[in-house]
């Protein structure tokens, strides 16, 4: 309604703080994070469920905004944590997509965009192995693995998102990656040591 004066960048905590008085400031948080969050959720559940999950995430976040920790300048862990709970409601759908990919070799989630990249033959078998692993992981392990691999969160950010200790993030990731490697066929125990995240 009232035009905001200066466009200088404030951090997410400041925006959320501002939204307590001026709820419209919350739309700026949407502008910053909705796209990436949507893509992350769409990779897990498909685009149409992602539409709902992301909308509900921001509404739930708005309702909880008074409990946001103002010491955290980046709201991504908070938002991805809320989304993780909502994604969890669709666990069967998520797993059904992975299983269908294992069974048929066709990924219903990625299929609509198939013409966007060159299909690599070598990726095909890897996809099925990954899908097999993802379908077999516990929900907590899968959340950690995909927040790292698809949402690019650091260990600390994943810990904040899921409200678990960083040590638990490490051990879940370790376990999830061991299973993934096994499903990919290269069952090399020495390879399960920790790797740099963005290497």
């Amino acid at each position: 309604m009232i035009p905001e004066a200066p466009p200088d960048r404030v951090d997410d905590a400041e925006l959320i703080q501002r939204s307590r008085r001026d709820p419209e400031a919350f739309a700026d948080l949407f502008d910053r994070h909705a796209s990436a969050l949507h893509r992350y959720v769409a990779r897990r559940l498909g685009a149409s469920l992602a539409d709902d999950v992301v909308s509900d995430t921001f509404l739930a976040a708005f309702r909880k905004r008074e409990r946001y920790d103002p010491a955290q300048p980046d709201a991504r862990p908070w938002l991805y944590g809320i989304a993780a709970n909502l994604i969890g409601r669709h666990r069967r759908t998520e797993i059904r997509f992975y299983r269908a990919l294992v069974r048929t070799g066709v990924d219903e989630v990625a299929e609509p965009y198939a013409d966007r990249v060159n299909q690599r033959v070598s990726a095909q078998s890897a996809q099925r192995g990954l899908a097999k692993a993802l379908a077999g992981l516990s929900a907590g392990d899968r959340d950690v693995l995909l927040l790292v691999a698809w949402a690019d969160l650091t260990y600390e950010e994943v810990a904040r998102a899921l409200d678990i200790p960083v040590g638990t993030v490490r051990s879940r990731l370790h376990r999830a990656r061991a299973k993934t490697r096994a499903a990919l066929g290269g069952d090399d125990p020495s390879a399960t040591s920790e790797e740099p995240l963005h290497g």
């Binding site: 893509r39 966007r116 890897a126 990954l130």
Partner: peptide, 25 residues
């Protein structure tokens, strides 16, 4: 074998949502 790299490529073709979702949402 870099499982994380393979995983990052999985479904990488899924795009950001377009304005047809972002604007009304």
């Amino acid at each position: 074998m870099d499982d994380l790299r393979l995983l990052r490529e999985m479904r990488a073709e899924v795009p950001d949502p377009g304005p047809e979702w972002l604007v009304p949402a």
